[in-house]
Amino acid sequence: MNSPVGASRQSWFGRNRMTLLTVVIVAAYASFIEWFWGWSAIIAQWAAVGVMPILVALALLTSTYFLRTWRILDYFPRETAGSFGTLFRVTQVHNLLNIMMPFRTGETSFPVLMRAEFGIALTRATSALLVMRLLDLHALLAAAGIGFAAASPNAVPAWFLWAAFLFLPITAFLIRKPLLRLGFRLFPAKAQGFLSEIENGLPANASAFARAWAMTAVNWLVKVVVLAWALSLMGVWPLTASFGGALGGELSSVLPVHAPGGVGTYPAGITAGAIALGAPGGKAALAALAQASINAHLLIIVSALTGTAISLPLGRRRQL
């Protein structure tokens, strides 16, 4: 029989195991950087870039969080009316947890926070989040497809496939009602309420869908351009390689396999994307690219922390 102290200790570890795992992995990552490159070399690369470009990049990256909040505000206009500050705080807490928790487990915080703050049903918030994540993934893949289509020896079919993929969300939106009707016919009665909440989580009409799609495109355009610019300042060339690196890093962040804090996976995504779009593969070039990818990753983490710090004074969470 477990003692109260032992049970309490087990309960504490159960509640905080993901946080502890994150701390251990981040600490191991920091130690690896010190052992392999040395933090002095990493900081020296920041110093070579200069303070002003870093501040501009941070400001632009942080601005994308406001656009994300606007997208969610537009998704739930009735429930979130007049609560931009509170919603910004929710999105920043969700974003930070999503970055720091492994295997996308931080995503679960979004529906929980939306229910706590705005009374939105878990299934509705979850379905809305799924749609937004699919739009995010589509925007990044479409951007990456530009580079591959441009480099393809068969230009006409490559650009045709890219255009078909680009308009895939429109097709999905147009056929959503027949698909839902089919689901209502096929699913048992107990699932009807769940399907109804999924339907409620979709954009209400074509105008709402167009706004969500446009805000998604602008958000990722700004983020990828800023990251590509930062990578180019850190010596990642040619310019196509810096864009490939930015896309690779961000793609790694929206895929299901995601390490705590993006440790390892985000820099690996940058490196893979840069090499795929023309970065040189020599030993010295790869070492420089690895350093640049780590610094770009740190830039993303600092921007998330900055956005969270800005959001903390905004709004107060209502008690359930």
Rank of each mutant, 00 (worst) to 15 (best):
E79R: 07
W70F: 09
R104F: 12
G106C: 05
Q92Y: 01
F110T: 01
N98H: 14
R115P: 11
V131C: 09
S127H: 07
R71P: 07
L73N: 00
M100K: 06
F76E: 14
I120M: 09
F110W: 12
L130A: 15
L129F: 11
R71Q: 02
L96K: 06
T123P: 10
L87I: 05
A125M: 07
T126R: 09
E79C: 10
T126V: 08
T91I: 12
I72A: 14
H94T: 03
I120T: 03
V131D: 07
L87G: 05
A149P: 09
L96H: 13
A121Y: 05
P111A: 04
R133E: 00
L97N: 14
A144P: 06
F76D: 15
H94W: 11
R78A: 13
A81R: 15
L73H: 07
R115F: 01
Q92D: 09
F118M: 07
L87W: 02
A144V: 06
I120P: 04
A116N: 14
L134I: 14
L137E: 02
Y75R: 06
A143N: 02
V90R: 02
L97I: 10
D74I: 01
Y75I: 08
F76K: 03
A143G: 15
A128S: 04
G106P: 03
F118A: 11
A116V: 15
L96S: 13
A142C: 14
G106F: 08
L135Y: 08
R68S: 04
R68H: 14
P77G: 02
T80G: 00
S83D: 05
L137A: 14
L130K: 01
A142L: 14
W70L: 13
E107R: 10
F88T: 10
G82W: 03
L122W: 15
F110C: 00
G85V: 08
S83T: 04
S83Y: 00
T105H: 10
T126Q: 08
G85C: 00
W70C: 02
L113D: 05
T69L: 10
